[in-house]
Simulated scan of single mutants.
Amino acid sequence: MPNVHRLPAKAFRPQPDEHAQAMALLRERGLTMDALLQACQRALIADPDGALAALAPHWPGKGDEDAAE
Rank of each mutant, 00 (worst) to 15 (best):
K62I: 11
D47W: 05
A56L: 09
L25I: 05
A67V: 14
A9P: 07
G30H: 11
D17S: 13
R29N: 10
L52V: 05
L7P: 00
A51P: 02
M1Q: 13
L7H: 14
A53Q: 03
A51K: 00
P14T: 04
A54E: 03
M23S: 10
A9T: 11
D47F: 08
Q15A: 13
D34M: 10
P14M: 07
L31D: 03
A67I: 08
G61S: 07
K62T: 15
A56E: 14
D49T: 14
K62W: 06
Q41A: 06
P60R: 04
H19N: 11
A43C: 10
E65W: 04
A39M: 03
Q21E: 13
M23W: 04
G63K: 13
R29L: 08
D34Y: 09
Q41G: 02
P14E: 04
A20V: 10
E65Y: 06
R6K: 11
V4R: 14
D64R: 06
A46P: 00
A67S: 11
H19V: 00
E65F: 10
L37V: 12
E18S: 09
E18G: 07
P14Q: 08
D34A: 13
P2M: 08
E18R: 13
R42V: 02
E69K: 11
L36I: 05
P48L: 05
R27P: 00
E69A: 11
A56R: 14
R6V: 06
K10W: 11
L25W: 06
G30R: 11
G61L: 12
L52K: 08
L44T: 03
A20H: 07
D17R: 15
R13W: 07
P8V: 12
L26C: 09
D49P: 02
L55Q: 09
R42T: 02
T32D: 05
E65L: 09
L36M: 14
Q15N: 15
H58S: 09
T32V: 04
Q41S: 07
A56F: 07
A9F: 13
F12S: 05
E18A: 11
A22V: 13
A68N: 05
D64P: 05
A53C: 05
A24M: 06
A68D: 02
N3W: 04
N3G: 02
A24F: 11
L36G: 00
L55C: 07
P8M: 09
T32H: 03
A43F: 01
V4F: 12
K10Y: 05
M23Y: 06
L44S: 01
A46R: 04
R27D: 08
A35W: 08
G63I: 09
E18H: 09
D17G: 02
A51W: 00
L37P: 01
A20P: 01
R13Q: 07
C40H: 00
D66S: 10
P2H: 07
Q38D: 09
R27H: 15
A46G: 06
D64N: 10
Q41T: 01
P2D: 06
A56H: 07
M33R: 02
D49Q: 15
R29E: 01
L55T: 02
K62D: 15
A54T: 08
A39D: 01
G61T: 12
A51R: 00
P14D: 05
H5F: 15
